[in-house]
Computed example of a mutant assay.
Amino acid sequence: MSDVANTEPDPRSRPRPQYGEYATPEEQRARIQEPAPWQREPAAPIMTDAPVDGIPSAPVVAEKRQHPIDRIITFALLAYGLVNVIASIPAFLDYGAYAETMLGVMGVDAQLSDPAAGEPWAIAAVIVLAVGWCVTTALSVWNMRRSRVSWWIPLAGGVVFSMTAGALMVAPLMNDPAVWQALLDSTRL
């Protein structure tokens, strides 16, 4: 028999392994920071620091959708609302002039019996507008940071808080007996 069949191969003659040849697929992905197939599209950002076989895994961050036109429209509506709130403050705080204007628009020739009674209502309306704008802005920014469509929030906030402030401003007019008498007299003609 020949000696060649019984001899073991020389370990020096064997080729050296290539980089990563003996690593598991998970170890290879962790080294090259590639997510596993089941981790490629997570619903929320996942930050894990738990080591897999002694190798810390790379954080996988979900891609957020961007809405640049929505952001522009939202900020434009918020800016318009801020200008509206600032312009309304002096008009509301001069309740006598506001009441005359409203009565003129309604076509009623009347004077408020107590114009000073409307001032607390006007202050409340200003507070409602200012706080409403702040709440609307906070909700809009919070919604935009979560990459959600936000243009409707300033519109809804503007409608709700403007109508509430308008109702507060009209309340003293509707409670004044002189205005009611003038309204009744104008409907009899």
Rank of each mutant, 00 (worst) to 15 (best):
A125F: 08
L155R: 04
S140M: 03
I32D: 06
W180H: 12
T164L: 15
V128L: 09
L82M: 10
V160F: 15
G96I: 07
P68Y: 13
P172G: 02
V83C: 03
A97H: 13
D176R: 12
V83K: 01
Q111K: 15
D109N: 10
A99I: 07
A117V: 08
Y80S: 14
D53S: 04
S162Q: 06
P68K: 13
S186Q: 15
R146Q: 15
V60L: 08
L112S: 05
S140K: 01
A43V: 07
Q18L: 09
V179A: 01
S57D: 09
L93A: 12
L183P: 00
S88T: 01
F161S: 02
A44V: 14
R16C: 03
A156D: 03
L78C: 02
L184D: 15
H67I: 02
Q28N: 04
V128W: 09
R148D: 06
R148E: 06
E41M: 08
V149D: 07
L183C: 03
D10N: 15
D3W: 13
V159S: 09
M102N: 11
A178C: 03
Q181D: 13
L155N: 05
Q66P: 00
V83M: 10
G104R: 11
T7W: 03
L93R: 08
P154E: 12
I89V: 15
S13W: 06
G54W: 08
T24S: 15
P56G: 05
V52D: 01
A50F: 04
A76F: 12
L112Q: 04
A122N: 03
T7V: 06
R188T: 12
S57L: 07
E34I: 12
I123V: 15
L184H: 14
L184I: 04
T24F: 05
L168Y: 03
G158Q: 06
V4A: 13
S147I: 00
D53H: 05
I127T: 08
D185Y: 01
N6S: 07
R12I: 04
I72M: 11
R65E: 15
Q66T: 11
P115W: 10
M47F: 05
A171S: 11
G132Q: 02
T187V: 12
G54R: 08
R71A: 11
A125P: 07
C134D: 01
L78H: 00
L77F: 14
A117K: 07
L129G: 02
A117R: 10
T137P: 00
L183D: 08
L189H: 11
P115G: 08
G157W: 03
F75A: 09
A97M: 07
V52G: 00
V60G: 05
Q181S: 12
A156K: 05
I32Q: 06
A116D: 09
W133F: 06
P115V: 14
P59G: 13
V159C: 10
L103E: 02
A122E: 06
D53C: 00
P56E: 04
P59N: 14
L173H: 10
V108C: 01
S88C: 04
A124G: 09
S2P: 09
I32A: 09
L112A: 02
Y80V: 07
Q181I: 03
S88F: 08
Y19V: 07
E63T: 11
L189P: 02
Y19W: 07
L112P: 02
L82H: 04
S186E: 15
P115F: 08
P154I: 08
